[in-house]
């Protein structure tokens, strides 16, 4: 969400501190996903305070069969930075979707999106990421027969 480990650490500490206080007072929220909801909003707050990426029209490419091998060449931080640069709610949708912790209903609740919106954001992000992949780690050309 933030693309910055130090900022993420601060957000995490703040959430745990708040949770400890709430638990001591017996006021933990009933929402079972409250930790993630809280984390999302705190991340959004922090990122709004920092430098904002310029809105740019992203190129879109069809998902290629070579995508897994292209992604395999990436450093995890590159992916983190790419996701953190996405505008919200696309950023939240991507972060939560690829965390592989939630089902459809939970994703919709956490991102506060409707199914068609979530589908649109994730679908667009795939194609934008593929375009970025093609530019960053171009797929290997198949060797020409001798």
């Amino acid at each position: 969400m933030l693309g910055d480990a130090a900022k993420a650490q601060e957000v995490f500490d703040a959430i745990m501190h708040d949770a400890a206080l709430r638990a001591a007072q017996g006021e933990l929220p009933k929402d079972r996903l409250w930790l993630f909801t809280d984390a999302r909003w705190r991340c959004l707050e922090v990122s709004e305070a920092g430098l904002q990426p310029e809105p740019v029209e992203m190129e879109e490419h069809e998902i290629a069969a070579t995508a897994p091998s292209q992604i395999g060449q990436l450093d995890p931080y590159q992916l983190a930075i790419w996701i953190s640069a996405a505008p919200d709610p696309q950023r939240s949708a991507l972060a939560l979707f690829y965390l592989d912790e939630f089902n459809q209903d939970e994703l919709l609740a956490l991102t506060e999106l409707k199914t068609h919106e979530l589908g649109k954001w994730i679908g667009n992000a795939r194609q934008e990421f593929q375009a970025w992949l093609n530019a960053t780690v171009p797929p290997e050309e198949p060797a020409e027969p001798l």
């Binding site: 993420a8 998902i63 897994p68 990436l74 995890p76 992916l79 690829y98 965390l99 990421f129």
Partner: peptide, 21 residues
């Protein structure tokens, strides 16, 4: 292709180091 793409991205997400704290 979509599944393979998503699984590769998720694998990379899992590889993001989590601070010890």
């Amino acid at each position: 292709h979509q599944r393979a793409f998503d699984r590769a991205v998720a694998g990379l997400v899992q590889a993001i180091p989590i601070p010890n704290q």
